[in-house]
């Protein structure tokens, strides 16, 4: 049966940051509470599904890095928050939480996607691969692209790196590595604040040649 690590027993609604954006909160003098849910007072809510009795949470079973997992989650939970906050897989990073940086890139059923815009409740039966799943044997057996990032000095702070590597794996699988220019274009969904792009392209090129 699927394992549920201790971290996954966080009570429902334990994601205050996702209730409303920080901007909404700051700009609103007061907040009211409706049915246990905080709602900014300048926002007119649609009838709450709770009022109609429709469940706002669900149960999802998926495979993460080869391991079956089951969790009961608020429907609002992103795959990114499920991985980080519930499964303790903090290798996948949150940058923008809006699809605009690529830090959260993981593979879902073999394709690279943004985990921040993926609702976890949709992933029944899905296979997810994160950076933690690339070298299950530990640091002695790194994935060729992880090794290439080290050899090509393709990071500084490292915050974007898990997303870059997962995206690079997708890029190589898709066959978009025929020239540095092509790699640059097909890796453009991953922003690097430290500006390591030149070496990231070299690392993807190196791994594409060896995998």
């Amino acid at each position: 049966m699927a394992s549920e690590p201790p971290g996954s027993r966080v009570p429902l609604g334990a994601e205050p940051a996702s209730l409303f954006s920080r901007r909404t909160f700051i700009a609103t003098a007061t907040a009211v509470t409706v049915g246990g849910v905080a709602v900014a007072s300048d926002v007119v809510p649609e009838p709450s599904p709770q009022a109609t009795g429709a469940p706002v949470s669900g149960r999802v079973s998926l495979v993460v890095n080869g391991e079956g997992r089951t969790a009961t989650i608020d429907n609002r939970t992103s795959l990114l928050d499920l991985l980080r906050e519930r499964f303790g897989l903090t290798g996948t990073k949150k940058g923008c939480d809006a699809g605009a940086c690529g830090a959260c890139t993981v593979l879902v059923d073999g394709r690279r996607v943004n985990a921040c815009l993926t609702l976890a409740v949709r992933l029944e039966g899905a296979e997810v691969t994160t950076i933690e799943g690339l070298a299950p044997g530990g640091d002695d057996e790194l994935h060729p692209l992880q090794q290439a990032f080290i050899e090509q000095d393709a990071f500084q702070c490292g915050y974007c790196t898990p997303g870059q590597i997962m995206s690079g794996i997708g890029c190589i699988q898709e066959g978009h590595t025929r020239s540095p220019g092509e790699i640059r274009e097909w890796m453009s969904g991953n922003i690097c604040r430290c500006g390591c792009y030149v070496n990231i392209v070299k690392a993807v090129e190196q791994a594409a040649g060896t995998t």
Partner: peptide
């Protein structure tokens, strides 16, 4: 348009 990841979704 967008990025390779977004176009996959």
């Amino acid at each position: 348009s967008a990025s390779a990841q977004l176009r996959n979704m």
